[in-house]
Design a protein around this nucleic acid. Sequence first.
DNA 1: AACATCATTTGATATAAATCAAGGCAATTT
DNA 2: AAATTGCCTTGATTTATATCAAATGATGTT
Lengths: 243, 243
Amino acid sequence: MNLELTPETIKVACSNCNLRELCMPVGLDFVDMQKLDEVVATRRHVKQGDLLFRDGEEFKSLFAIRTGFFKTSVATPDGLEQVTGFQMAGEIIGLDGIVTDKHSCNAIALEDADVCVMPFSNVEQLSREFPVLQRHVHKVMSREIVRENSMMMMIGNMRSEERLAVFLLNLVQRLHARGFSQAEIILRMSREDIASYLGMKLETVSRAFTRLSDEGVIEVKQRYVGILNHKALKKIVNPNACD
Amino acid sequence: MNLELTPETIKVACSNCNLRELCMPVGLDFVDMQKLDEVVATRRHVKQGDLLFRDGEEFKSLFAIRTGFFKTSVATPDGLEQVTGFQMAGEIIGLDGIVTDKHSCNAIALEDADVCVMPFSNVEQLSREFPVLQRHVHKVMSREIVRENSMMMMIGNMRSEERLAVFLLNLVQRLHARGFSQAEIILRMSREDIASYLGMKLETVSRAFTRLSDEGVIEVKQRYVGILNHKALKKIVNPNACD
DNA sequence: AACATCATTTGATATAAATCAAGGCAATTT
DNA sequence: AAATTGCCTTGATTTATATCAAATGATGTT
């Protein structure tokens, strides 16, 4: 007999997922929500260090992260890794693949993860039937465009300490939106990953951590980061801010 | 009587626009193409130096550039301008506004321009009826995401000369796709704009120009840039490339 | 033509971050 | 418990780019 439900084949319903406010459009009635359950085909488990998809791989699905933490990266011309983003529960990953039907980056699990596999044809099909889903998909993509705009601004203009401050503020904000502490972070990525993402070297990241720590703004112990003075952290990014 | 057609109100048809291969999905029959004419509401003329839209302004429409050249920019925390992109004929501008229903950047015409105004509600409406248009919209957004990924990679990892090489290669490639020379560019933007876009200072851009010029790779005279050695320019970006 | 304005180039110097190198800390293995 | 390994921190030095400053060149104006 075969009663085993392998993680690869579990069928899930968005309608009773506690993350649906993050992945799915809001303001749907229960009936519509049940129809939207069709977007998700299966779930997939990804072990820490494993790839969800890789650069060049055929694009078929978007993935909604249920649990776990990912980084996406591209290869530089000289073969190094450039981290392009970090993604957590409730976020959508794989949008890069739409334009060429091939993924253009690698998605690596920084901790054991579960993702909802959403075949893009399902997404497009249901988008045509549900304007609210269509709008949602557009917003998710637009949000990513705006995020990258501000990343460019940051890497192009800010000093190392400022970049790290922005990075930490963004992380706590996203974690807080998921019910975690506003004052504590357990980093899932290495100093090297952070450095790559912020366009600096790992030693510079380390020094920026110690400087923020010396200033009493944060408390660092390996991958634990305590935000001691949220306001001061914001001031580092924007000294003129009044709030 | 009122026979004047102001530039603000000219109605245009994609079906006989010579740029449609760039803005519109390919492989449409004439009947479908005529229906798609409805996406474009009006045309709008933007004078050099004027804004097509500004940060914070309500988002209602995407814009397809018919003629002219734009830059988009955001403000840094200290009030400086960070250029986030340059757009030319056939490209779509305004995607940043979808996520919050407000534009999150400024779009400034670097030369007199004509744009097709595409109310986003029309785009969404017709996307539901024409899967090929829907797919096209998704691809346009995904392309922008991928472009910004590679910009991050570039700003984070490359030296000034390499960044300028990438920038010039990208420009000629896009201009060539529009029927212009593969070997000559008339820059529409200032050194300062280029510097901001590439995450450097205008003096550094200037020095990078002279260095590439001294190496005999390009020829620079103000805003005219001649590509003397396309291969060498590529080699600067990726010394190991075999083509 | 002389003048003013703006954009660009060039030079000298300062500086933030990269690089090179060593040491420390924590977790895992033997 | 000692040893290995991976990750992070710290220190010394170099380097690419930023900054400051001036000169040059193009464009438009009176």
